[in-house]
Design a protein around this nucleic acid. Sequence first.
DNA 1: GCATGCGAGTGACGCCTGTCACCCGCGATG
DNA 2: CATCGCGGGTGACAGGCGTCACTCGCATGC
Lengths: 200, 200
Amino acid sequence: MIRVLLAEDQAMVRGALSALLNMESDIEVLGSAADGEAAWRELQRLKPDLLVTDIEMPGLTGLELAQRIQRQELPIKVVIVTTFARPGFLRRALDAGVSGYLLKDAPAENLAEAMRTVHRGGRAIDPQLALEAWSEADPLNDRERQVLRLAGEGQSAGDIATQLSLSHGTVRNYLSEAIGKLGVTNRIEAYRLARQKGWL
Amino acid sequence: MIRVLLAEDQAMVRGALSALLNMESDIEVLGSAADGEAAWRELQRLKPDLLVTDIEMPGLTGLELAQRIQRQELPIKVVIVTTFARPGFLRRALDAGVSGYLLKDAPAENLAEAMRTVHRGGRAIDPQLALEAWSEADPLNDRERQVLRLAGEGQSAGDIATQLSLSHGTVRNYLSEAIGKLGVTNRIEAYRLARQKGWL
DNA sequence: GCATGCGAGTGACGCCTGTCACCCGCGATG
DNA sequence: CATCGCGGGTGACAGGCGTCACTCGCATGC
């Protein structure tokens, strides 16, 4: 019997996944949580074998949850189920020691199957995503990432500068570098591309 | 017996919802589709009582599906189930004659209940969203919307001008108006705000 | 001890943006 | 008929953006 905790912020999807998993005779859904903090509490209370979690959740993300589990060396395997086919996310997930990474685009039957594989000690990584993950490295450094994130919210170089206690010109230099590295022509495209790749 | 067709692009969510609905004794899921065109074909083949559909799908969106059903006067009620709490979407949905509009944030039990209400001839609209929908009207006209969409992809005024066969300056005028109407300070914020409100 | 590299900053250049006042043609409305 | 209103355009201005060359200080590494 595989004992599972489910973390997913959209209630309807959470309920539906729960119904789906409860149809499997060898899987038992112990409970579910709507955000990262709740999941962390339930994790300690219910001590499941497996955590099935989304990435984007209020409070703590699924990736952060996985990191915590890894640091505290809890005997709980993690399977990520997410919308985002972003190579950067998968890489961070693997660094956080997760055993499974599926896309919500994959057929529903895959989920139970992946959970069994993981429970047996294996790994279940979406195949075409696994390829991409190691093909392209994130070219941005911390500053560039930071600046690009703020620029993507519509802030001007000046705004960003005050916020990061940098100079106006330096911010523009960072943005220029980021734009160059990504091979695009302006901050908007740079933001979109970086976001899509999961480099945020 | 309520005979249903399910349209949702994410396979895992589609499968899970299907499992959820099949647990209800008075609901029968006739089939499901992964994109708008497939849904339209299945609709004509299976002639369900009810279409449960997402909005954002490849090809035809859920809103466009609802419009088609309305125009062809098919005897099929529509329930929208979506992530997007955007007032503009709800308004367009109601214009397209849908009977239900739920958020994926709502509890899973609501779905079956809403479907029963709609099947009985009633309406099931997410309550707090219904309020917002009539509170704020979309201030943008067609040109402004068009220009803003392209600007959001990182295109410059010049690029947009050639694409729409307008002049460089006119594009900037439209953008300026849009920025003013939305009460923000640049195209990036304007794009984000308009998108978030569902005005696209 | 010197070179190398890196984070941060400066200043200047040209193009792009956002704003505004104003113009033109045309269809609707009185 | 006159006159609005409206879609589209022009030209100008200030300020923002993207680029580049160069500087400075400070930590590393031989």
